[in-house]
Structures are given as structure tokens and as C-alpha cells.
């Protein structure tokens, strides 16, 4: 059984003061196996963030269902949804979403504190992760005192510290320069190699080339996927680029 399974997901936004409707997702079907590293690619406005938000339980689907370990997410009670999010999912956002009033250490510990984890347990988990991510020198600083790349690594640490079933990352390299992006993707790849499942949304072919599988999304549905197989990152990146070129020229009429 797949760790994550998305079936016939549909999302229609209705504007608050008018009857105008936007169909962000029409029918999305795919699944993610445990230990996978999947990228979702698509142009801006293609529904990537919407998809991720529904998987994150931050937003509700219009129809269709998301299953985690075979359990439908829509059946989670309102009261338990936050706890579920805290303990099962890890998030990495494009704009970091770190809190300026917390030190780096406290930012990373935040989900554990919210879960009322004993302090000894928190500290025991913290050190290996920050060392692994190369930010142990900065844990007493504040977010505004470190670089963008470091911030994103802090966000990754915050996602990892709850030992989530899956990490959901929305354009994690979107606000980073190429060097920091490279560094972050290597980190994510390393984490994945240790067994962590990752689902990432991106429009960067370079970033996507670090994953094992790439899904292409357009006009609200998945229309293509490619596996890396035994290819190197560079080879895979070429294939991703090719796919994108072919697919976008095929879809030109829609633009």
C-alpha cells in the first residue's frame, strides 16, 4: 500500500463576493510510496500550492480524497487536525515561515513544544539534526541574523524534528540563490537517502533533478511523469527539460 494516495482530487475556488469560480485542480490522481522523493512540476498557477495545501490539511478539497497510510484525511476531526499535522507531516515553505521572535533553536523546537514533548527529548533530537544540516553554530541566533540558505535549512530541521511520515516542501529553493539551492537540494537528497519520504513542489528543473520521480501538472491535473532510474542528476535534468519543452509546446494553444 502506498504511503500517500491521491484520488480524483478536485478543487474549485469560489470568489467570496461573486459567482466566479476558479478550478485550481480538476482531477488529480497519483501516489507516493514510502521512501520516495517525488517532485511536482508545473507552471505558475497550475495548482501546485493548492495540491500541497490540501495534502497538508491546510485546505479542503471540493471532491476526491487524500489517503495517508490508507486513512482518508477528510475523516480527521477538526480537533485532531493540528496534532495530526504536527506529528505526521513536516513542512518546508518557499518563504521559510520562520518566526522572528524565536531563536533558531526555538524555531526548530516549535512543533515539539506544541506537542508538549519533554525537554530532554527535545534536546536529544535537536543536536543530531542541526549538526547534520550544518547549522549548529547558529542555533542561538535569530532568523534575521542568518542567510536565506541557512533559514531554509532551519525550516528543514523544523520539519525533520517531529520525525514525520512525509515532508511536504513548496518551492523550497524559490527564494534562494543557485549555490544555496544546490546545497539545500543535496541536503534533501541526503535525508531521502536515509529513508525520509519527500514530496516537493518546484518549477526549477535543477531542483527537480535531485528527486527520484517527477510529476508534471497542468491545468489542474497530472499529465506526465518520469522516473530517474539509474540516471545521474545531470542526465535526469536534461530529460526533465526536454519533457517540459515538449509538453509546453504541445500545450501552447492554451496559453
Amino acid at each position: 500500500m502506498a504511503l500517500l494516495e491521491i484520488k480524483n482530487l478536485k478543487k474549485v475556488y469560489t470568489a467570496r463576493f461573486s459567482a466566479q469560480q476558479t478550478e485550481a485542480l480538476s482531477t488529480v490522481n497519483f501516489s507516493v510510496e514510502e521512501g520516495e522523493f517525488v517532485s511536482i512540476m508545473g507552471e505558475s498557477g497550475s495548482g501546485k500550492t493548492t495540491l500541497l495545501n490540501i495534502i497538508s490539511t491546510l485546505d479542503d478539497a471540493t471532491s476526491g480524497e487524500v489517503y495517508l497510510d490508507g486513512n482518508p484525511l477528510s475523516k480527521i476531526k477538526d480537533k485532531e487536525v493540528s496534532a495530526f499535522r504536527r506529528s505526521t507531516l513536516g513542512f518546508v515553505f518557499q518563504d521559510f515561515n520562520l518566526l522572528d521572535n524565536f531563536s533558531i533553536k526555538d524555531n526548530i523546537l516549535l512543533p515539539l513544544v506544541l506537542s508538549k514533548t519533554p525537554i530532554e527529548e527535545m534536546e536529544a533530537r535537536l543536536m543530531p539534526i542541526v549538526r547534520n544540516l550544518g547549522i549548529e553554530a547558529h542555533i542561538h541566533k535569530y532568523p534575521y541574523e542568518v542567510s536565506g540558505g541557512q533559514k531554509q535549512r532551519v525550516a528543514v530541521a523544523r520539519a525533520l524534528i517531529t520525525r514525520p511520515k512525509i515532508i511536504l516542501a513548496d518551492e523550497p529553493t524559490g527564494a534562494l540563490d543557485s549555490k544555496a539551492s544546490q546545497n539545500l537540494m543535496e541536503i534533501l537528497k541526503g535525508i531521502n537517502e536515509e529513508g525520509q519520504t519527500i514530496l516537493m513542489v518546484t518549477h526549477s528543473t535543477r531542483a527537480a533533478s535531485f528527486s527520484k520521480r517527477v510529476l508534471f501538472i497542468r491545468d489542474g491535473s497530472v499529465y506526465h511523469e518520469i522516473y530517474r532510474g539509474g540516471q545521474t542528476a545531470d542526465e535526469f535534468m536534461d530529460r526533465i527539460s526536454q519533457s517540459l519543452t515538449v509538453l509546453s509546446s504541445r500545450g501552447e494553444g492554451h496559453e
Binding site: 493540528s82 513542512f91 518566526l99 516549535l110
Partner: peptide, 15 residues
């Protein structure tokens, strides 16, 4: 904004 971010990582209304 802070509370919105915290809600994303699992802060519930009760907290």
C-alpha cells in the same frame, strides 16, 4: 502572521 505560521506547523485554536 506569527499565529498563522504556527498554525501551519500545527498550532491548534485551543493553544
Amino acid at each position: 502572521e506569527k499565529f498563522q505560521i504556527m498554525q501551519k506547523v500545527g498550532l491548534d485554536k485551543e493553544m
